[in-house]
Design a binder for these strands. Structure first.
Lengths: 197, 197
DNA sequence: CCACTTACTTACTAGTTAGTAAGTAAGTGG
DNA sequence: CCACTTACTTACTAACTAGTAAGTAAGTGG
């Protein structure tokens, strides 16, 4: 085999394409990079990318599908799934703080929402599923957290989950436009309101 | 004059370009429309648009600058400035609900944040000013509202203002990806938390 | 060892992009 | 009435876009 099943230090080209495309997507937006940009940076020809992902639509869809698989894997990880609710929420906040530390990358949702209507239908569908599953997960976390007295909020868990996730996605966008400060301020406000004192 | 100073039913070409570019920007994103798209829809040649806005950077900057002028005008309008805080907040929510009703358009900030790093520097600067002034205005509204007992929140008015505006921008993006429901849910949650019962 | 697959490169097409230069018709100001 | 300005159109360029077709070197399975 040219591509070993055992993970090596140098990932195969397909993975390197996905990784770089994700970089471009989260840093510049889906309509702001081309196969030429990818090819040049990877040291291959644009046609090599067309070999792995015949069209940019295929590439974009693969990108969102991979992120959805990551979400499901992360959510079901024992070190996440077995945590008490307030620590599950902290783990979620850590993911967004990690984006912030990674050159103020926005999250996948925040990078695709504005261009949503220009995206291929399968990509739109995957993104909807991604957002829905993440919201449902957080709603469950919030419901248990309030029931056990470690988290505090008014209204339904579903509404609060939608609000919190929307705020987090937006906070990364604000961080990009200004600097890290507003993100820290907004997340500080979320902690202040959610964590029962 | 070819272009009367008195506002007519048919705006001049420059204004028609700005209006249509704003449509495209809020519906598809800055990197997803071209001078050809604008020209075709307006029934002019692309060079006519270059005449009014030599480069797309100029057009984009004019777009954000106009929105900043609108914000200042709206904020200082007697029918807004003279309102009690809770009604000023309602007026702000009405602006976002109006975006929702207008084919689920995202707001200017939400449409530019993802592509921010691909934008010309003057456009970035205008967007920063726009977001800063809006946040400062809302912080003041919240401060007065809490002092007079009509609005309720913990933490600083500045932090709460940043959080609320970020949530509103994000809520329009979520509405685009799904439908109007999550927007209504998120704004309902905001009202529930902010308006003193 | 030979047919086949994988992972590319080379070479190309047709369409789109922003942007420019030159021309022009219509109106304006002195 | 004439020089000038405004608001365009026509005609063009150079670069870039996604995408395709054909070729090829290296490895794989029978």
């Amino acid at each position: 085999m040219l591509t070993p099943a055992t993970p090596s230090l140098v990932p195969d080209t397909r993975t390197r394409i996905l990784d770089l495309a994700e970089d471009f997507l989260l840093e510049r937006g889906f309509n702001a990079f081309s196969y030429q940009h990818l090819a040049k940076e990877l040291g291959v020809k644009p046609a090599a990318i067309h070999y792995h992902f015949p069209s940019k639509d295929d590439l974009g869809t693969a990108l969102v599908a991979r992120q959805l698989r990551r979400l499901r894997k992360w959510r079901d990880l024992p070190r996440v799934a077995d945590l008490p609710p307030q620590q599950q929420l902290e783990a979620l906040l850590a993911v967004y703080e990690n984006h912030l530390g990674h050159d103020r990358r926005v999250c996948l949702f925040g990078s695709l929402a504005a261009d949503f209507r220009t995206l291929p239908a399968p990509m739109q569908a995957e993104l909807r599923t991604f957002n829905r599953e993440l919201t449902e997960w957080l709603a469950q976390v919030l419901a248990v957290g309030r029931a056990t007295g470690t988290l505090r909020f008014v209204g339904s868990p579903a509404a609060k989950a939608a609000q919190v996730l929307t705020t987090l996605a937006g906070a990364l966008q604000v961080a990009r436009v200004h600097d890290e400060t507003p993100f820290q301020v907004i997340v500080g406000q979320l902690r202040l309101e959610l964590f029962a004192s």
